[in-house]
Design a protein around this nucleic acid. Sequence first.
DNA 1: TCAATGGTTAAGCAATGACTTTACTATTGG
DNA 2: CCAATAGTAAAGTCATTGCTTAACCATTGA
Lengths: 113, 113
Amino acid sequence: MLHQPDQLDLMFQALADPGRRLMVERLSKGPASVSQLAEPLDMSLSAVVQHLQVLEASGLVRTEKVGRVRTCTIEPKALGQAEKWITDRRTQWERRLDRLGEYLAGQSDKPTR
Amino acid sequence: MLHQPDQLDLMFQALADPGRRLMVERLSKGPASVSQLAEPLDMSLSAVVQHLQVLEASGLVRTEKVGRVRTCTIEPKALGQAEKWITDRRTQWERRLDRLGEYLAGQSDKPTR
DNA sequence: TCAATGGTTAAGCAATGACTTTACTATTGG
DNA sequence: CCAATAGTAAAGTCATTGCTTAACCATTGA
């Protein structure tokens, strides 16, 4: 049984690579061509294109080719989805801490069942 | 030359797996034992422990063993680091859009009559 | 027209990831 | 004490990832 990855899988997977994060960092400053994205990275252009495909499949980056130049842009909405998942978990945890209050704070490490 | 992964690599990598995200979701509701984490997951306990090791190595989860029970807790600070990286990128992009908007607004102040 | 630029495609390879099974150890309730 | 519980460790398998090189195509500036 194969697992078909959903959007969050793809986005977090995409962000797990330092090269790809660098590309996103660059794109958050404004659109760029493939060669521009490749410039600071110590790898072949081919490898960069493959990373770009991962980013595109995840929805984090959108690209459009005009002439012989492919221009890449970040998709802040997608970034927002990943952000939301994390925020939701954190706030859930913090709400729980609030509910516990001072009285129970000392025993809050016991597993809840 | 091998690439030694930093904290962000490990955290996003950890969050890229749906099973591990489920574990984090469970833990954001409160601490749990390994078996409790395993319960909703369709895999061996051994596999769950391995996922747990990934989460622990990433800093997202802290565990402590008392007697024969290992109790797991999320580490909201780590979650916050991943959150921050994303937020920073998004706000950087949005600031850029704002600047662009101001520039265009300035252009449209040109006398139209 | 034609060479340089910008990117694409395919094949191949070593390393990593996500499991499994099997065997094992430590704790604990009765 | 002893069986059930809770987890651990090691080894093996198979798929996926992150590159590489090489050959290739389309656009463009001179």
